[in-house]
């Protein structure tokens, strides 16, 4: 796509989800989102009303997370939370999928969980966070299909609190699975315009990041050189490089690492680059 600074900004959910976030930080977030005309601010429920008030005369949406960051509450609690945040002014709801139920193949519960949020969301769009770092590729595909079937508006890669951020591999897989009409949001670990462009190229149409200002500002460098986007070592963006035994279930970690054995780029898998 012919990406401009403005188009890039309009793909970004300007995000602050840290527990220590103050009202001053929310004010700054909303001010920046207004200046740069980001798609939305992505915040915790406690700040929804304040952000909605600050952004009421702008085109910037209020996106609020639900069941965050673990996704391990009940469908009823997620629905209640959704009702609450939508009532407070949220235009978008980013819910965390029931990761454990998905891994248990308890797809009824996963579906009911998502449907309960959609049912409580009114006109708000619902994005479902898969937390891909806990999943193998077949599980990611299954999760995408459930989300699509349930009527969610977006699938989203990660919370930013889990074992892995967004990777082009996952975004590509998710886009291929959900097709062109559903949204794919990449989130977690997006720090530079190069990260952003790679994920957009892989199929993302929304980016969740706390580095939105830097990404948009630095994107202005693109006009001065083509070399920023020169290929890097393939392992740099591969989820297998990011796999972490301390944070992932053993079989998931092992699955990621076993991919390296048959990877055509495995000679690049060194740790001093």
């Amino acid at each position: 796509m012919d990406l401009t600074v403005e188009k890039l900004a309009k793909m970004i959910d300007h995000t602050v989800l840290k527990p220590e976030t103050t009202k001053a930080k929310i004010k700054q977030l909303c001010d920046e989102a207004t200046i740069y005309d980001f798609a939305a601010v992505c915040i915790n429920p406690v700040h929804a009303e304040y952000a909605a008030e600050l952004l009421k005369d702008t085109s910037v949406k209020v996106c609020v997370v639900v069941g965050f960051p673990l996704g391990a509450t009940t469908p009823e609690v997620k629905a209640c939370e959704t009702t609450n945040v939508v009532g407070a002014g949220a235009h978008e709801v980013d819910m965390v999928i029931n990761v454990g139920a998905l891994r248990d193949e308890n797809y009824d519960l996963v579906t009911r969980d998502i449907e309960s949020v959609i049912g409580a969301s009114g006109d708000a769009h619902v994005k479902v966070i898969l937390e891909t770092g806990y999943l193998k590729d077949d599980q990611k595909v299954k999760a995408c299909l459930i989300c699509k079937e349930a009527g969610a508006d977006f699938v989203k890669t990660s919370t930013g609190f889990g074992p892995m951020g967004a990777t082009p591999h996952d975004v590509r897989l998710m886009r291929e699975t959900v097709g062109p009409l559903m949204g794919v949001k990449a989130a977690g670990g997006i720090r530079s315009f190069k990260d952003a462009i790679r994920l957009i190229d892989a199929g993302a149409d929304r980016l969740g990041t706390s580095a939105g200002v830097a990404i948009v500002e630095d994107f202005r460098w693109v006009q001065y050189s083509d070399s920023w986007m020169a290929p890097d070592k393939p392992c740099w963006t591969c989820p297998s490089r990011m796999a972490n035994m301390a944070k992932q279930p053993k079989e998931v970690y092992t699955w990621y690492k076993e991919r390296c054995l048959t990877c055509p780029d495995k000679e690049h898998n060194v740790f001093n680059d």
């Binding site: 190069k194 460098w221 083509d226 920023w228 020169a230 290929p231 890097d232 070592k233």
Partner: peptide, 11 residues
């Protein structure tokens, strides 16, 4: 502003 591969001579 972005990380480029320090080992690549091209570009």
């Amino acid at each position: 502003p972005v990380l480029v591969d320090r080992d690549r001579p091209d570009g």
